[in-house]
Design a protein around this nucleic acid. Sequence first.
DNA 1: CGAACTTTTGACAAGCATCAACACGTGTGG
DNA 2: CCACACGTGTTGATGCTTGTCAAAAGTTCG
Lengths: 268, 268
Amino acid sequence: MSPIHEGLFAPALRKLEKWGPLSEKDCAAIQAISFTTKHIGVGPYIVRQHDPVESVCIIISGLAFSSKTVGDGDRQIVALHLPGDFLNLEHAMLPTADYSIQMQTAGTVALVSASTLRELAFGHAAIANAMWLDTIVDGSILREWTANVGRRDARTRIAHLLCEFAVRLHPAGLTAGNSFEMPMTQEQLADAAGLTPVHVNRTMRDLRQDGLISTHRRTITIHDWQGLTTEGDFDAAYLHPIAPQGSSCFQAVGYMHSPERLPAVVTA
Amino acid sequence: MSPIHEGLFAPALRKLEKWGPLSEKDCAAIQAISFTTKHIGVGPYIVRQHDPVESVCIIISGLAFSSKTVGDGDRQIVALHLPGDFLNLEHAMLPTADYSIQMQTAGTVALVSASTLRELAFGHAAIANAMWLDTIVDGSILREWTANVGRRDARTRIAHLLCEFAVRLHPAGLTAGNSFEMPMTQEQLADAAGLTPVHVNRTMRDLRQDGLISTHRRTITIHDWQGLTTEGDFDAAYLHPIAPQGSSCFQAVGYMHSPERLPAVVTA
DNA sequence: CGAACTTTTGACAAGCATCAACACGTGTGG
DNA sequence: CCACACGTGTTGATGCTTGTCAAAAGTTCG
């Protein structure tokens, strides 16, 4: 562990540990892996749809987003990534990208080769555990986004996304009181919500006029959290908030999933 | 392995083996796990959104789908499950369902306790490997569905879903030439596409009139595959078609992800 | 054979997209 | 330091895609 790398993985370690405490051996293994870091600006693709991918990226600082491009050139944003997040953990296992990744704000990412990550995972159950869980929670968020664009009207979609941003940015220390810096432009918000930028703008104006939020430059202030969650049909359960940390590798898993009860319909 | 259970896991074993060959030891471990089977009809919930879940389900026969319900009662279908598929592999790790599962056609599911599945995965790297990959591919399909409902018009959405059905049903032996039994009613297709049943009906009529497909009862025949994929902006890459099988546990993984090349933008 | 579900069609309404123009903030080069 | 270009946000006018409501025909199953 060279000094130059020291602490770079701190956010990622914190993230992985949320899913279950890691032993000293696990932590040491993580800190021993070889990786490179790269400062990346806004614009260029970190991963590009249809391209082969050999590295898994972890955000050290900055924000990033994933998107898919459809036939007519329109874009759907399918994920927002915060510091400490894996950008493309699936590419530890898959060779080809089915989506693209770009930075939303300039920042630094760490690159780990897919094979290194696979060795790490398959040599350390607690790490595999954490990575699998990370993949699973990303899937849950994706289901919510699918329902959001598929079955909610514009106002509800935008309110919902704003609620998700607030909840996810908070533990990352990216909120101040009821305010946070918008992690997207209105055009990107449109691409995340499946709307046009113009309609996003009008919708946010309505939310403003109804006193739910206010905006100043790129800063959003939520004045009525209760109201916004109602408008946005928002229930944070799909974010699968983290279990408190325990001391043994699998304690957290045990906490998250205490056995011996079947869903009524199946047992009936 | 009691005779009554013999072969019940065959579809699931095939599925897992697609992701990488399993050793005899792995196979034996799978066949040794305790599970129950249950015949389930159309209608009742197998897993219900917001409920605690203790079992992972695997379809032995029949079709199933996952859906989320939003505030106003509308429903978004977020996944279609074929025989051999896990219905809710994430519940090996998560205690609470963020979506619901129902059978689309009556069939049989196998139930395995989440803890049993976790033990299986964490005791057998190749199995963990396969399960993680399964989770990952489900995520890829979900991203495509998100883009589908978010950024494609009605005609394209429906054509895309029909293409996906054709491609996924084929290896399951559920197609006959260019025809297959529709795995959904038009109402469900609407819930998958983020449209109304009425509009789905009109859209399918248009596809029929344009000679792309024809329908007879619940049977769909595709007359112009090339045309339908074009109309549907369909590229099967997101289904991450399976690597050919090798002989050692990780050979297939190696095949899927051959290292030592970084995406251009990152290396530049 | 009848009830319940599914598919189909029509008439009409509404939400969101499109096109166009302008305002605002920021960074850059003359 | 100002002028200018560029990205982003804002608003208006208009129209199309899709939703809503309603009713009837076809299909499935007890």
